[in-house]
Design a protein around this nucleic acid. Structure first.
Length: 749
DNA sequence: AGCACGCCGACT
DNA sequence: GTCGGCGTGCTC
């Protein structure tokens, strides 16, 4: 029996102390247990990280004298030994304290005592009156008799709200001892008002069968197989492979974890899992950010109680306390939303691979446009790859046409104020769809400065007072809004530049709002709807709009990234990308990769039914590789060219990036701090680390803080992080400067 | 010499 | 995180 517990003290970064386990508690103190411990003269709390047989030896060679831990807190631990191991790995790799890491692994709604199980008072039958009594009641107190009859038929009792008009009768029955009223736990069901029609497994085509076999073999190998990359083009039926693989895992008595990008992007994926497993609906738990705190609490406990065997969730669901894991699936593994933007800044896709290693289970990464990190891992033999290169049911990929906006703007010059949103080609294609009763999706990538207010006469751009980015014009409430800090101001009537004052500024730039407006004017017969964060604020609004689109009550759907991914509408035969350049010219070596992924994903929304699809991409740079390769559906071609470039410059996946950022309201201090760190790092970092110069971040100011950054690259992350941590500890950082470390960043702003 | 303050290391 | 030891440097 272990006699010693190593305890991580709460709220004290990386303080791990050993305590002896008193006799009364041996056996009940396990890894993950919450315990109260003495610390100096006080009492504090902590988490048991591991159990030891004997106290460690001190500097004098003798065992360290240990204090006994005080008591056990709480019930079954939040963390299993393998989740603690996972936490240790994350804390080490991402340079975060173990305490903060473990805290981020359990939802706040579970961790804080505020949320608890929801209870409702229910009446239950305690004993049935004898025949004479019943006879008496039915004559003298028909209300009571009726209640008894109802209760006799329901095993779980009936909520007392059902008897709201008969509280006196209920009370009388309670007093006679026939009925008792108890608090019963009721589960908050995020899908309460939805029904899922059971779906049956579809027939797999040859490639899908090969893929399923490979996954099943990996599951059966119990962790000795390599991670598996499922590269399947859009519409090739990846989800069906996931569903059947999960089914196999369940049959083996194991559980499965399915990660999907932030749920609002793919409501359809969740629905497909809920439907396929509708016969065991209670075994499916869903975890994502749109759940209420109470729902999250209940779903998490459903997993913790071992009731749920399938978890479908976003990024943080990678920490779901599932046991006997057989398979972890990461859908759309290239998605940037898997990266957490606050500490620990982990990437759930990478954590999935680590967790699979710890739990000795299989891991499947799926994508139509795999990240170059994962793809290179298959080329290097670290991952295995299976390919679905045909659309399921013999459908074909859409024809992609590229419209050169440079020649287009020459055609329309002078005819309309500002740039024209729809090219002639796209207009004609849309008219044709409307005539045939088919549907169109128009995609506008609002990232970048598309809808900023730029004066056409003097070039003045309305910028945020607190951040160094242009403000975005929202016509509905006539405001300029900062998408970084939320700052809002009334839109100016004319150009604010003192020597300009041109009223034309109000018509510059376009975003989804303006597209919709122009569309209404240009095609009055079409029924249109807009999907972006502004219109989809209400709960279920996205779901409702998509349902209306599916039932063809809407002809044209205009939207941002929200409609780019994962949606499957058979009647959509045309997709228009209004400005493909917007993500292309940002200072980030992944700009091309991101654009290629987006175009490929958007194009994949067209022609998913019987009818052939068409995609029109409007761009000012038709020659750029991301656009040309996307046009030809050529992931392999693009990856070859891009990987060669990345290798030449030692960018990921041929190196790991560590991004050091300093920020402060005091510009010089932020800059000086980073310069000092850079100087010290130059001395301690090994030669094979590529270190840039400290420089202003592309987002030079945000929320009144000036930002500077330093990029470091090396083959192995630890080559950088070990000396970096030592340097950070040894350097005094001014109180008003914040220094952050981002390992494998995806956002270089 | 006496004391305040801040840094640093230990806490089991 | 928090406490206490100890060194520095200022004041009496």
């Amino acid at each position: 029996m272990p006699k010693v517990a190593r305890v991580l003290i709460d709220n004290s970064p990386d303080l791990e102390l050993d305590y002896s386990i008193p006799d009364g508690l041996t056996g009940s103190v396990v890894e993950g247990s919450r315990v109260a411990v003495p610390l100096r003269a006080k009492r504090t709390s902590g988490t048991v990280l591991e159990l030891l047989d004997a106290p460690p030896l001190g500097k004098n060679g003798k065992p360290v004298p240990l204090k006994p831990l005080s008591t056990l807190l709480g019930g079954r631990p939040f963390f299993s030994a393998s989740l603690i191991a996972l936490g240790r790995w994350i804390a080490g790799y991402y340079c975060t304290s173990l305490d903060a890491t473990l805290r981020s692994m359990v939802p706040e709604a579970v961790r804080s005592e505020k949320q608890s199980f929801k209870t409702r008072k229910r009446a239950v039958l305690t004993k049935l009156p004898d025949a004479a009594e019943r006879e008496h009641l039915s004559r003298r107190a028909p209300r009571q008799a009726a209640i008894l009859k109802e209760l006799a038929e329901s095993a779980e009792g009936i909520a007392i709200t059902e008897f709201s008009g008969a509280s006196a009768a209920l009370k009388a029955l309670q007093e006679k001892g026939f009925v008792s009223v108890e608090d019963k736990v009721v589960t908050r069901d995020p899908f309460e008002d939805e029904t899922f029609l059971a779906s049956r497994p579809l027939n797999l085509n040859g490639a899908q069968q090969v893929a399923l076999k490979a996954v099943t073999a990996a599951v059966e190998s119990r962790g000795s197989a390599k991670p598996l990359l499922l590269y399947g083009i859009t519409g090739s039926g990846k989800t069906e492979v996931y569903l059947q693989a999960v089914d196999n895992v369940l049959e083996r008595g194991q559980s499965a974890l399915v990660l999907v990008p932030e749920i609002s992007l793919t409501p359809q994926t969740v629905d497909r899992f809920k439907s396929r497993f509708s016969h065991i609906q209670d075994s499916v738990a869903v975890l994502h950010s749109h759940l209420s705190a109470g729902e999250r609490h209940d779903e998490w406990h459903k997993i913790h109680r071992r009731e749920a065997r399938i978890v479908v969730g976003a990024r943080s669901a990678i920490f779901a306390p599932l046991e006997q894991l057989g398979l972890i699936i990461v859908d759309e593994e290239h998605e940037f939303s898997y990266k957490q933007e606050n500490p620990p800044r982990y990437n759930a896709r990478d954590i999935a691979v680590v967790r699979a290693g710890i739990e000795r289970c299989a891991v499947l990464l799926g994508s139509a446009t795999p990240s170059f990190e994962s793809f290179q891992n298959t080329r290097a033999g670290k991952y295995d790859i299976v390919t679905l290169d045909e659309r399921a049911d013999d459908r074909t990929l859409p024809i992609v046409r590229v419209v050169d906006l440079r020649t287009e703007s020459r055609k329309t010059r002078g005819k309309s104020p500002g740039p024209s949103v729809l090219s002639e080609r796209l207009r004609i294609a849309m008219d044709r769809r409307l005539d045939r009763g088919e549907q169109t999706i128009l995609f506008i990538n609002r990232r970048g400065f598309a809808s900023s207010l730029v004066c056409q006469t003097c070039g003045h751009v309305c910028e945020c007072q607190h951040c160094s980015i242009p403000l975005t014009f929202h016509k509905k409430d006539d405001r300029l809004v900062c998408h970084i800090c939320g700052f809002r101001q009334l839109a100016p009537q004319k150009c604010p530049a003192p020597d300009c004052r041109d009223p034309g500024i109000r018509f510059a730039g376009f975003g989804t709002e303006r597209v919709e407006e122009q569309l209404r004017a240009a095609m009055p017969a079409a029924r249109t709807a807009r999907v972006d964060t502004d219109t989809m604020s209400r709960k279920n609004q996205l779901r409702d709009t998509l349902a209306a689109f599916r039932s063809q009550k809407i002809d044209i759907l205009v939207g941002t990234q929200m409609i780019a991914k994962g949606l499957d509408f058979p009647n959509v035969t045309l997709v228009g990308v209004l400005n493909a350049d917007l993500g292309l010219h940002i200072p980030d070596f992944r700009a091309g990769e991101r654009t290629f992924q987006l175009l490929t994903q958007v194009a994949g929304r067209a022609g998913r039914g019987e009818m052939k699809g068409e995609v029109v991409i409007q761009t000012f740079t038709p020659h750029s590789p991301a656009i040309q390769f996307a046009r030809h559906h050529d992931y392999t071609g693009y990856s070859e060219q891009e990987l060669e470039f990345r290798q030449g410059f030692s960018y990921p996946p041929f190196s790991h990036v560590v991004l050091l950022t300093s920020r402060s309201t005091h510009e010089r201090r932020a800059e000086f701090t980073l310069e000092t760190l850079a100087k010290r790092l130059k001395k301690t970092l090994p030669d094979d680390v590529i270190m840039g110069d400290p420089s202003p971040s592309p987002l030079a100011r945000a929320q009144d803080q000036f930002r500077f950054q330093l990029m470091l690259r090396a083959r192995r992350t630890a080559t950088i992080t070990r000396p970096l941590q030592a340097t950070l500890e040894a350097t005094t950082i001014p109180g008003d400067v914040i220094v952050t470390t981002d390992i494998d960043p995806l956002n270089l702003m």
